[in-house]
């Protein structure tokens, strides 16, 4: 009985995952090689051409999503790092308050917050309107329906997922280690690049994983803040499933996206996820 206990403990969660993750995945994998339409039904024909067709048709959106995800992740690192650094080293007794503030947006729905960006950034909204009437901006200046708006929305929505892991890694850095670097003739900048930064790389690594994946597959920001030229692969998948009812193409796209991201992350982890990189960065 005692030997079975660990297995019994994972049973509820394991069952949950099996029923709600594995079963639909197998089902969708099967759908992705079927042919037919909603009215007459789909039949399994092992049509792997679904994959090549989808990829050929939506290559632009795939590349755009990867580009947005990459740009958003880089921006998120640059914005999140100083915030995490400040909370970890200067937060003092109020650290948990600041962390709560970082998490506060999550108390409001994701979609609602993105829609409120739409109001804020509208062509004659509360931000651009006054600037335009003051003559500081051209009358046809706009933010919505641009790449900037979509990437801005992505960064805004996923920033906390970058701040938290970086904060955790910085919080673990013993301040006396930084003093030791200063004592051993490192300048302030040198102590940062050779000691603090390498020690916080695991946090950046985790933050990148936690933001790049959802940013790349996001569709809400492109749908609300973007225009026809900003369509991401997530929007395409949504349209194929819910508008065109072309389940096989939607499924093929989803699996392609998954495969591409898994491969990318695996490569990323192989390159950055080892201690040698930390060491090289510190020299």
């Amino acid at each position: 009985m005692r030997r079975l206990t660990p297995y019994l403990l994972i049973l509820p969660g394991g069952l949950w995952l099996a029923v709600f993750l594995v079963v639909p995945m197998v089902f969708m994998a099967s759908v992705s090689t079927q042919e037919g339409d909603v009215v007459n039904g789909f039949a399994q024909t092992f049509a792997f051409s679904n994959y090549t067709d989808a990829l050929a048709r939506y290559q632009t959106q795939f590349l755009r999503s990867a580009g947005y995800g990459l740009a958003g992740t880089v921006l998120a690192v640059l914005l999140a790092y100083p915030v995490a650094y400040w909370i970890a080293f200067r937060g003092g007794a109020r650290k948990s308050t600041y962390l709560l503030l970082v998490l506060l947006p999550f108390f409001v729905s994701f979609v609602l917050r993105t829609v409120s960006w739409k109001f804020l950034l509208a062509d004659d909204g509360m931000l651009l309107g006054p600037l335009k009437s003051a003559g500081l901006l051209a009358a046809d200046f706009h933010v919505l329906q641009t790449t900037t708006a979509v990437i801005g929305g992505l960064v805004y929505n996923y920033l906390p997922f970058m701040i938290l892991p970086i904060y955790v890694s910085l919080e673990r850095v013993d301040p006396s280690v930084v003093e030791a670097a200063r004592d051993l003739y490192a300048s302030r900048a040198g102590a940062f690049t050779r000691v603090v930064l390498p020690l916080s790389l695991p946090g950046i690594f985790a933050g990148v994983l936690m933001t790049f994946v959802p940013m790349t597959s996001d569709y809400v920001n492109a749908a609300i803040l973007g225009g026809p030229a900003n369509t991401m692969i997530g929007n395409i998948i949504q349209t194929e499933y819910l508008v065109n009812n072309d389940y096989p193409v939607g499924a093929a796209l989803s699996f392609t996206l998954m495969a591409v991201m898994l491969a990318g992350i695996f490569a990323y982890a192989r390159v950055l996820g080892t201690e040698n990189v930390l060491e090289a960065a510190a020299r």
Partner: peptide
């Protein structure tokens, strides 16, 4: 401190955890 010709041994040693002994 980086411009002073004195060095310190810290109470907690403050060794750089991401470097080996030589580094």
């Amino acid at each position: 401190p980086d411009k002073r010709d004195v060095n310190m041994v810290f109470q907690s040693y403050a060794l750089f955890p991401h470097m080996d002994v030589r580094e």
